[in-house]
Design a protein around this nucleic acid. Sequence first.
RNA 1: GCCGACAUAGCUCAAUCGGCAGAGCAGCCGCCUUGUAAGCGGCAGGUUAUGGGUUCGAUUCCCAUUGUCGGCUCCA
Length: 601
Amino acid sequence: MFILEVSMANVKEKYEDSLLYRIRHSAAHIMAQAVLEKFPEGKVAIGPPIEDGFYYDFDLPRALTPEDLESIEKRMRGIIQSGVNFEKKVISADEAKKLFHDQPFKLELIAGLESGELDDDGNPTDVKPEISIYTQGGFTDLCRGPHVENSRQINPTAIKLMNVAGAYWRGDEKRPMLQRIYGTAWSKPDELKDYLWRLEEAKKRDHRKIGQELDLFSINEEVGAGLVLWHPKGARIRKLIEDFWSQEHINNDYDFVYTPHIGKAQLWETSGHLGFYKDNMYSPVDIEGQQYFLKPMNCPFHLHIYKNSLRSYRDLPIRYAEEGTVYRYERSGVLHGLMRVRGFTQDDAHHFCRPDQMPAEIDFVLSFSLHILRSFGFSEIHAYLSTRPEKSVGDPAMWEDAETALQESLDRSGLDYDVDRGGGAFYGPKIDLKVKDAIGREWQLSTIQFDFNEPERFDLTYIGEDGQPHRPYMIHRALLGSLERFFGVLIEHYAGAFPVWLAPVQAAMIPIADRHLDYARQVAQELKKAGLRVIVDDRPERMNAKIRDAQNQKIPYMLVIGDKEQESGQVALRLRNGENPGPIPVADFIARAHAEIAAKS
RNA sequence: GCCGACAUAGCUCAAUCGGCAGAGCAGCCGCCUUGUAAGCGGCAGGUUAUGGGUUCGAUUCCCAUUGUCGGCUCCA
């Protein structure tokens, strides 16, 4: 009943208008007060509410320790329980400057407010905002609000400081590094408990942990940071993904191409990568006095394949697909398991089409993309349309065409989408697709991008009905994004319990005693013939141990075999969710497995 | 790259104040022949990430490097 009430109350209310938002904002101020009591010489920056909590940035004389966080949190409880009021006051810029004369970050914010260009988060704004301060206890902060009226509205047992992290002032890496304390705050202790539980759940699904436990992949210091080793079980899943992917592309009139991992400097000059992407590219290798670069993208090669023949308008659309492995320089601090690596394989494709084919081509690639994502169990998909930025290349009329086509296609698709005006790349507008995983986190996978730049640079043409050369439209797309990252997302989505069609081992034969081994092997042969991936657990272990191990390996089907099964030609089926359907004939099991594989469930 | 934390057996983790580096699991050997989440016993396993330094003596203290983690910036 309680839950119903809250969800109904929150349906229409925006987060910014909610009590919880004010609680978190006020908790941030109370934290700042506690920190300044501890470090009177500390400088305060900004402290907004965020999803699930709040943070506040400080410039302090020394690095904070976990013990500091404990004492700050304790002091916060004290302040909250003392019941201080939050009082707002509107003041002039001069008064503000005087008040915050020893707080350089605040002075900078005041200057921004005064000039009317920036709001108190430092974001550009059109309205010249008023300058307001909030005071609680002995602490006064420059702040737009809103806050709770009294600290007693904050439940002292529903807040927790989480961690300290470095953060640049105003997010600018050229500016000072501050210490950011992250905290979380809720209306009730149960909600805090629930939040901490969700964090635990996310931790359990961490693809780095599961990757180790299920022996799927590793990243080795001696091999190099950000370079992935796919172990047999991970590789098997990748192969299954790739096989499905290939078949779907064949069914949808793609041509496969293969291209090299390096190309001459001139290629990357022509494509423009050495101009606008050099920071992400590795140093060149010298081959007989010529410079070659490791490829950060596949497109230039595909463009050359297109250019290798004269193309007729009758040939279009042309769709070239490649699982192309690219290498990009990523700064050491950003590497993260499979999600952010230095070498990865894109499920890449480039479409070349005539202007009149373009809307249909977008429709196709969008629905194809959805089909692929849904096949992997992602049903909640959100789209983002990014349009022409201020600095762009290409004829504005083409941009207009392309953006209209993208938007109309989105409308037809029935997808929810947001428009990011001016958020496109300089070379073309795009649609990105994000999927929601099993615990509600969003991951960007697909991207569908127009490119007005490269066809121009490589002078791509096709001969039209009029016998004249024309410039084709080019669309660059990746559906899964990168196989590495997609695999990471899959692992977290399924928490390692992959659907049967993707499970590296689909069935474990579990003979109870040695005398059942022959029958187990015989059934295993039968299952292999039926196309199933099966192992026989022939270790001299107890059945219970074998079940436990199969369960921990998240093998979908456990087939227990004892005297009864052997005599009746059956297998005793147990599922990884703990369900125990019991003995069934081998043929029935095969039929059941085939059905689940076909359904991709 | 930047801020902070961390790096001990294949894995997960101990080791007090600077004084002989330890456990569980996994592995190997043996016994048990088992009915739905770990049977029992034994053996083996280490240049304490790497390289320097301080010290009679360093897993422990200091410096550098590599890598990992949490963020920032960036991003498939």
